[in-house]
């Protein structure tokens, strides 16, 4: 058995016109929350989609708990769970039906499925609204349900693309706590992307700065602050991407 949950090695990916990833490499340990931070268009979503098995890399190696997702596709998908950046919901399904649908796909027994739904319902915080069709949910309600459905299947690696985007402060805090608790309880690993430095400092054990398709720094928030001579992660990030903000403003 390996001590790492995820190995990403030299990922390259081009779309029709742009090269989105230019040799991205990093590792995530078991029980670790790992944050991918970078400006818009840096390649975060592309990286997460490749790891989730939705896109194929042009080049590079991925190992999830030692398994090759290309070879053991269904097996790997069973131990991961992915929250897409701009995921939507089925219009006519009720929230509770959606949770049941996913639980039955992932669970081995119906008891296990019931437990998953119970857990998902709880962390979604939607209460009675779970029995309404999902098209009646607000943006934040949809996001909470989707995040809950992602954690409820008990993935060994949860891949969360901007998990709290669109959530109010109160629910953002609740969701972060849910993610942290999940890792504490299960020892699972989380890979997330975020634009919220507060969130990253609170949640992440280690962080990677990504810019223009390349990882420019990796470390704990403390290490990064030291490396870039900054008092907080935001400053470290700005310094890391080359102080471009001042240039733009000036």
């Amino acid at each position: 058995m390996t001590e790492t949950a995820l190995i990403v090695e030299n990922l390259w990916k081009s779309y029709d016109q742009v090269t989105a990833l230019k040799g991205v490499s990093f590792e995530i340990g078991k029980g670790e929350i790992f944050g991918l931070i970078g400006p818009n268009g840096a390649g975060k979503t592309t990286t997460l989609r490749i790891i989730a098995g939705i896109l194929h890399p042009d080049k590079g190696v991925i190992r999830i708990y030692g398994k090759d997702p290309k070879r053991d596709e269904v097996e790997v998908k069973r131990i991961i769970s992915y929250l897409p950046e701009d995921a939507g919901v089925y219009r006519f399904l009720k929230g509770i039906e959606f949770l049941h649908f996913l639980a039955e796909i992932y669970a081995e027994t119906s008891e296990e499925a019931e437990k998953m739904v119970e857990y998902g319902s709880r962390i979604s915080g939607l209460g009675e609204r779970l029995w309404d069709p999902m098209k009646s949910y607000s943006k934040g309600m949809k996001r909470r349900l989707l995040l809950a459905s992602t954690l409820m299947t008990r993935p060994k690696l949860a891949i969360l693309d901007e998990p709290t985007s669109g959530l109010d402060v109160y629910h953002s805090v609740l969701m972060r706590k849910a993610i942290k608790n999940y890792v504490k309880e299960t020892g699972a690993s989380v890979l997330l992307s975020s634009h919220n430095m507060l969130e990253v400092e609170y949640l992440c054990d280690r962080v990677a700065f990504i810019d223009k398709g390349q990882i420019i720094a990796i470390g704990t928030p403390e290490e990064l602050k030291q490396q870039f001579n900054a008092s907080n992660l935001e400053e470290a990030f700005i310094n890391a991407v080359g102080g471009e903000v001042e240039e733009h403003v000036a």
């Binding site: 989609r49 939705i54 269904v74 069973r78 996913l102």
Partner: peptide, 18 residues
């Protein structure tokens, strides 16, 4: 069309089914 419009295809494709 429904899956595309609702943006549910991405999640569907990561489910542990072929």
């Amino acid at each position: 069309g429904l899956e595309k419009e609702a943006k549910t295809l991405e999640k569907l494709f990561t489910l542990p089914v072929s």
